[in-house]
């Protein structure tokens, strides 16, 4: 009987390992299928306010480093010229793109409905597009592969559940969601280590990602006092407190220093 103990132990360990491994996908895929029976906060369109603004980078913007795809012909062949990382996206007048702007505080206790449409993240030219994106908690993220090569999609969350899924050239989109709020969660491809994107998961719909013109708009906000935060992967975060009245529109600008 004693001789059998190690065997039982090994079988139990194997069973636990199998359950643990097999359970990952199931849990992750049902993260977005929360039963929506709760009461949601509805913004009164008559009093809804707007916060707009621009993100500026002062000083000489650092040059984005060049990506070397030469070791990967499938990726290299998709580009005609030099490819640079999309870290610092600067427009005319020093406007800063790829900055995530969101309402960090002021909406506590309010629950917002999860949008039914999904947010797209594509892998094109062995680059993630867009480089920075935002979505609501439990909203679907659809990751597609437009490249003629295999990628693996690997978010690196600190709060949400981590996952890693390969996607061949002709594979359908991977649909996943995140259940917890998390800002600037990196996503990477371990096959092509230069591929990096940032996902921002927010509990409400008041967020924006700046384009090259650095502008953002947070519309439909209920009147109140809010902390608005701008987050950039290189220049980190800044906060501005703003109070807006009913139907009011306020402009705030964020300014980073390039040094």
């Amino acid at each position: 009987m004693l001789l059998h103990k190690p065997v039982y132990f090994m079988l139990t360990a194997l069973l636990m390992l199998t359950l643990a491994c097999g359970g990952g996908d199931e849990t992750a895929s049902t993260e977005g299928q929360a039963v929506e029976t709760e009461s949601y906060f509805e913004v009164d369109s008559e009093t809804a306010a707007t916060v707009t603004g621009t993100v500026i980078l002062e000083g000489n913007a650092p040059r984005n480093p060049r990506i070397n795809m030469s070791a990967e012909p499938d990726c290299h062949g998709l580009h005609t010229g030099a490819v640079r990382a999309e870290v610092v996206l600067v427009g005319e007048g020093g406007t800063l793109g790829n900055t995530f702007v969101w309402v960090k505080s002021g909406l506590e206790g309010k629950k917002f409905r999860t949008p039914s449409d999904s947010v797209a993240l594509d892998q094109k030219g062995c680059i993630y597009s867009p480089h920075v994106l935002g979505l609501q908690t439990r909203q679907k993220l659809a990751v597609s592969n437009s490249d003629p090569t295999t990628h693996n999609v690997h978010p690196l969350p600190k709060i949400n559940r981590e996952w890693n899924k390969s996607q061949t050239a002709d594979a359908p989109a991977i649909e996943r969601s995140f259940s917890r709020q998390e800002i600037m969660m990196p996503v990477k491809c371990n096959i092509h280590p230069w591929m990096r994107s940032y996902i921002n998961v927010v509990e409400h719909p008041f967020f924006a990602v700046t384009g090259a013109d650095g502008s953002f708009e947070l519309k439909g906000l209920p009147p109140g006092t809010y902390t608005i935060e701008a987050v950039h992967e290189r220049f980190k975060s800044q906060e501005i407190s703003v109070t807006i009245g009913a139907s009011e529109s306020k402009k705030i600008d964020f300014s980073y220093k390039a040094g």
Binding site: D74, T150, N152, S166, N190, I191
Partner: peptide
């Protein structure tokens, strides 16, 4: 994590040896 499965790699003994794979 360029190969997400184990002990096989992409369900094969010999996957395409690209990039991190």
């Amino acid at each position: 994590l360029s190969v997400p499965d184990w002990p096989l790699s992409y369900g094969q003994w010999m996957p395409p040896m690209i990039g991190g794979i």
